[in-house]
Amino acid sequence: MLEIRNLHAEVDGKPILKGIHLKLAAGETHAIMGPNGSGKSTLSQVIAGREDYTVTQGEIIYNGRNILELSVEERAREGIFIAFQYPTAIPGVNNMQFLRTAVNAIRKHRGEKELNSGDFLKEARYAMQQLDMNPEFIKRAVNDGFSGGEKKKNEILQMYMLKPRLVILDETDSGLDIDALQDVSRAVNQFRSPERSFLVVTHYQRLLDYIKPDHIHVLFDGRIVKSGGPELALELEQSGYDEIKAAAVL
């Protein structure tokens, strides 16, 4: 599904990613953990196609194709979805109008018929119910005046509606109380399938209690310094990132 080869990226001339290698097979869930400033969010944004970052070396192969040449919207249409750490509020843009435009842009790309507003609303209402979201949120402006938890749920609602193949959850647990964390995790787990892969980016082990990864990678100073099974999260929880940092300095 996804293979990242020797990825280097910088912002404003400052190198952030310094040679990332990663392989994610269809149906797998991998977690990227690491201390603040290690490059976790940059990795997510570079995969999504943010133009503020410059890729200086390496490749991102998605379904057999190097996607570095694709624009952000082309990547989204190919099935890459990022649930943002800080979802943007867009006053004046209705959540339903936005989401329906997005759903239909992606359906059109896949050669599917556009959803009419009745069918769209039916599906959105069901998804919102699954997320324990107030149905009124679909009528409001995108993320405008939403609490932290509501914004994260709105990201997951978009994931539900857009039906991506590769989902990147960028610090989705930050700012969530335990109830919202459970709602979001349940929705993500229901969405897992043999054709779909997840990259869960998180600072803490807490989220991984709910969304169980197959593999964990530890990112530090722009490189993956350690990889392992789910047990790695518990080790990190006990020892913190200090050991990793010390080892990397050596």
């Binding site: 919207e73 989204a76 943002f84 943007t88 867009i90 843009v93 435009t101 997005a102 842009a105």
Partner: peptide
């Protein structure tokens, strides 16, 4: 960027923001 990351073209994203 947010709108485009959901598959909406740059031209349409601009139009949506201007209309908003």
């Amino acid at each position: 960027f947010y709108l485009r990351s959901r598959g909406i073209s740059q031209a349409e994203a601009r139009q949506i923001l201007i209309e908003a």
